[in-house]
Design a protein around this nucleic acid. Structure first.
Length: 501
RNA sequence: GGCGGCAUAGCCAAGGGGUAAGGCAGCGGUCUGCAAAACCGCUAUUCCCCGGUUCGAAUCCGGGUGCCGCCUCCA
């Protein structure tokens, strides 16, 4: 079964095969580095990170390019406002971007080219358009002539009349046609500029993506991605530039992720409801954010809510609680002989687990093959999680070698998700420790103090002084710690119903 | 106005012609000194409404209604 992806160009799902067998070439529009990134960027980044990881899992070599727009009106404006050099501002937010992406567990693309490093390529591309009569220069500016490119509108599904009827087309006296867009902008005083056949200036926004993607991935490449809101005009213009200049198809598959709203409304600076990735990471574990994004389909609109995040927190905790339980059992047993053919119990309650474990990789792949249905893939994991707990709870469960062997095998299903989806990816001990660190710091509690209280409570319990024991438990609960009495002693963890991490 | 998308339990959400995954929340039970965790059971005869096709539709078609995105910088 092939991987099927929804192609915005054809508006339907299509079986995906790269042009060169075994090698996928993919380009995703990155960010303009003029401000902190928000959770909308995170959604997009996570969606394409999963595509990148899954293609690799499917055995493809992937050349993944994601650009940085490091020269642009917004950067210039902001730099002026802050009175810092524009390239310094760009560098600052580039670093912030990497910091955020790394924190979210997003794998670095193969290449991350910057616009300013590719001015010659862009000039060359513009020249090609001039040569073909698809562009014209006016007063140091160069524009793309939309009316001379007959395929214009094929991605966004618009035609010329509709676009004009939209009426909100910018007025620029230099343009021959209001629909034309800038390929090269003449620099004003104090702005960065590069020499060009049309005079000193800087590139228009769209040209960098078609120039850089084609430089690194070829005239025609496999996947071009980005947010849904980039379809028009950005991606439409990229197609016009690229196909206009080469006469050949540009990207074969266009993949777009859906929009993210916050508490039902679009995030916008004027509303002041933009949640930066930094702020989000202050409140939620990176894997909570990831799981939240992946519990829905990447193309569907998604509403980021506190309530939704609280639900996901509980859900992720459920997985890690089971994982911890499994790991403890596995670690308590000597490593089994890898060559043993033993795969688990064929009778009793373990049989159901064996069946689910066996079926898991195929089911997972079948879900992911269907246009990255991460929600369904995770559904299978939660389903497995339940039968696993069921088995571990069963009175007949023992640490028999064959049981541990099955547990090891089940563990690999979680690892598969961790590898491809990025969650649950952590070692359970590390996961809880990480969550603890932050809460403990914010509450001024230390591990030692918690342990001291637990010890005090344990002796109270031995005395059957339930009042004292409950008092200590309630006190810790109020301070964010949840106790759990087990036959092996009292465990504690950070309460999952808390708002902060 | 144009283009596109979405409507599935209290909430989130997958599915998509053959009789409704999964998560969260709630209630009842098992376990526990009591809790917690986990497990079991219950919670959509029904998938926005109205028509049609079909042996059969939540799934297909037509028509409504509602919400959202894009058409200006935007992931």
């Amino acid at each position: 079964m092939p991987l099927v992806l929804y192609n915005s160009l054809s508006r339907q799902k299509e079986p995906f095969q790269p042009l060169e067998p075994g090698h996928v070439r993919m380009y995703v529009c990155g960010v303009t580095v003029y401000d902190e990134c928000h959770i909308g960027h995170a959604r997009s980044a996570i969606a394409f990170d999963v595509l990148y990881r899954y293609l690799q899992y499917r055995g493809f070599r992937v050349t993944y390019v994601r650009n940085f727009t490091d020269v642009d009106d917004k950067i210039l404006q902001r730099a002026q406002k802050e009175n810092v050099p524009w390239n310094e501002l760009a560098r600052r937010y580039m670093e912030a971007f990497h910091r955020d992406m790394d924190a979210l567990g997003i794998r670095r693309p193969t290449l991350e080219p910057c616009a300013t490093q590719h001015i010659p390529e862009m000039i060359q591309a513009i020249q090609a358009l001039m040569d073909r009569g698809l562009a014209y220069a006016v007063d140091g500016n160069v524009y793309f002539s939309v009316s001379r490119f007959s395929d214009y509108g094929k991605l966004s599904g618009r035609d010329r009349d509709q676009m004009l009827a939209g009426a909100r087309v910018e007025v620029d006296p230099h343009k021959q046609d209001p629909l034309d867009f800038a390929l090269w902008k003449r620099s004003r005083e104090g702005e960065p500029s590069w020499e060009s056949p049309w005079g000193p200036g800087r590139p228009g926004w769209h040209i960098e993506c078609s120039a850089m993607s084609q430089k690194y991935l070829g005239t025609t490449f496999d996947i071009h991605g980005g947010g849904l809101d980039l379809i028009f005009p950005h991606h439409e213009n990229e197609i016009a530039q690229a196909e206009g200049a080469t006469g050949k198809p540009f990207a074969r598959f266009w993949v777009h992720n859906g929009p993210l709203t916050r508490e039902g409304v679009k995030m916008s600076k004027s509303l002041g409801n933009v949640l930066s990735i930094q702020e989000a990471l202050g409140r939620y574990h990176p894997e909570e954010l990831r799981l939240f994004m992946l519990l829905g389909h990447y193309r569907k609109p998604l509403d980021f809510t506190d309530r939704g995040m609280a639900e996901v927190r509980s859900a992720l905790d459920r997985l890690y609680t089971t994982l911890k339980r499994m790991d403890q059992l596995i670690q308590a047993c000597p490593p089994t002989d890898e060559s043993s053919e033993m795969e688990g119990p064929r009778v009793g309650p373990g049989r159901g687990v064996l069946e689910k474990v066996r079926a898991f990789p195929e089911r997972f792949q079948q879900a992911m093959d269907d246009d990255l249905n991460t929600a369904q893939a995770l559904g299978y994991l939660f389903d497995l999680n339940r039968v696993l707990n069921q088995w571990l709870d069963h009175s007949t469960f023992s640490s028999a070698e064959e049981n541990i062997a099955l547990l090891r095998r089940a563990r690999r299903c979680y690892r598969l998700c961790g590898e491809v989806l990025g969650t649950p990816a952590a070692d359970p001990e590390a996961f809880y420790r990480q969550k603890e660190e932050r809460l403990l710091a914010s509450l001024g509690l230390t591990r030692e103090e918690i342990q001291r209280l637990i010890d005090r409570r344990s002796s109270a319990r031995r005395r059957k002084d339930w009042e004292e024991a409950d008092r200590i438990r309630e006190d810790l609960h109020r301070r964010g710690i949840q106790l759990q009495d087990t036959p092996e002693g009292t465990l504690w963890k950070v309460r999952t119903d808390l708002n902060g991490v």
